[in-house]
């Protein structure tokens, strides 16, 4: 399990698995801090647009994470809301693929 604690242990400094320094935040974009390009939805994130929403659902029906979709926070929230609305009205399944 990766640790997010501040680096208080000694003897591990310099190793790859060393914890970040006090107050430092581990980058979520990789070791070298390369920024990912933000994905932009090609179609509107609407609950009626079921064919497009189905691309962001796993085989078990789970909504893909931001890491996979690459969406901004705003678009990811819109995606989650649209999928949940589509599920409620019977357009998408709660479990499994269409």
């Amino acid at each position: 399990m990766s640790t997010m604690n501040s680096g208080t242990s000694s003897g591990m400094s310099g190793s790859r698995d060393s914890a970040p320094r006090d107050g430092a935040r581990r980058s979520k974009f990789g070791r070298f801090g390369a920024r990912r390009r933000e994905a932009i939805p090609e179609e509107p994130l609407d609950y009626k647009n079921v064919a497009y929403l189905a691309k962001f659902v796993s085989a078990n029906g789970r909504i893909q994470s931001r890491k996979r979709t690459g969406f901004s926070g705003q678009n990811q929230r819109a995606l989650a809301s649209a999928i949940k609305h589509a599920r409620l009205i019977g357009l998408m399944p709660f479990v499994g693929r269409i």
Binding site: K48, R87, G90, L91, M92, P93, F94, I98
Partner: peptide, 11 residues
């Protein structure tokens, strides 16, 4: 009318 379609799960 928007559509007539098969539901994703029976209601």
């Amino acid at each position: 009318r928007w559509d007539e379609r098969r539901l994703a799960y029976p209601i």
